[in-house]
């Protein structure tokens, strides 16, 4: 489904919706982005699982018995396949950011601004109960922006070092040593960051525990929108263009 189709469809829907007082739903991730995310998630998990298998201590491996060698071979193949998938989806993402309207909007909303620093301080004050209300976040808050930056840097480093290791014979051994070290260390950093920052943010926060399905449906309801992204909500509601893009029907009709 192309981007244009989605907006057209959603436009139709929002028109219908404005007539009745049915609850409003907002698009957080469109279909294209959800597919990108899904490929990235799967390849990330496969990469982490098959990658850290290298570091499992030998005594722990005994339970595999005679299957060890097969497991190792499969591990290597899967790791390379998942790595390739991740690089392709990342490359596509850059294409998406530049050549698609939704991508450009994403990039624009993701740009760091001085406002983010203010919001960060405000939020910290809210956490320690100096301020009574959280800051009014736009589409992407400082949390998302930090994470997105880390994701780009991390994926870049992992891809580059991974490709160097894949073609090990062409390089100076020193380069390979550096690549191996960075690949391992960055992997640890990425996994810990994903678990602590991303997993907590989207799935483990008390009101979302044990899991949120936004990454599958791509939409959130009006209450959550008001709560989490009040500024974005206001912008959408006041701008008919944005309403066309972001307003949608309920989750069931989304399919």
């Amino acid at each position: 489904m192309s981007h244009n189709e989605i907006t057209m469809e959603q436009g139709k829907m929002s028109k219908e919706k404005e007539q009745g007082d049915t609850p409003l739903y907002f698009v957080r991730l469109n279909f294209n982005e959800r597919v990108q995310h899904m490929i990235f998630v799967v390849s990330f998990i496969v990469l982490a699982a098959t990658g850290f298998m290298v570091w499992i201590p030998e005594t722990t491996l005994d339970f595999l018995g005679g299957a060890k060698e097969t497991v190792f071979t499969v591990r290597g193949v899967l790791h390379r396949m998942a790595g390739t998938a991740m690089i392709i989806v990342s490359a596509y993402h850059f294409y998406y950011l530049i050549f698609k309207r939704a991508g450009r909007r994403w990039l624009f909303d993701m740009m760091p601004r001085p406002k983010d620093i203010k919001e960060f301080i405000h939020n910290m004050l809210y956490y320690i109960e100096v301020k009574e209300h959280p800051p009014e976040f736009d589409r992407f808050s400082y949390k998302h922006k930090m994470e997105y930056l880390a994701l780009i840097v991390g994926t870049g480093l992992m891809s580059a070092s991974g490709l160097i290791l894949w073609a090990e014979s062409f390089w100076d051994k020193f380069i390979i040593d550096i690549a191996a070290l960075i690949h391992g260390m960055e992997a640890v950093l990425a996994c810990l960051a994903v678990m602590v920052w991303h997993m907590y943010e989207v799935h483990l926060r008390p009101h979302k525990f044990p899991g949120d399905n936004m990454w599958l449906t791509g939409i959130i309801d009006e209450a959550e929108m008001k709560e989490e992204y009040p500024l974005h909500y206001k912008r959408i509601m006041s701008d008919p263009k944005l309403r066309k893009i972001y307003l949608t029907k309920g989750p069931k009709q989304d399919e």
């Binding site: 910290m124 109960e129 950093l189 810990l192 960051a193 602590v196 920052w197 907590y200 943010e201 009101h207």
Partner: peptide
């Protein structure tokens, strides 16, 4: 880097957790 970044993240999320509760 890992120590400081992850340390910051854990602290941030603990505060968040406490506030939401």
């Amino acid at each position: 880097l890992i120590g400081s970044v992850i340390g910051f993240m854990v602290l941030h999320q603990l505060l968040d957790f406490r506030r939401i509760r």
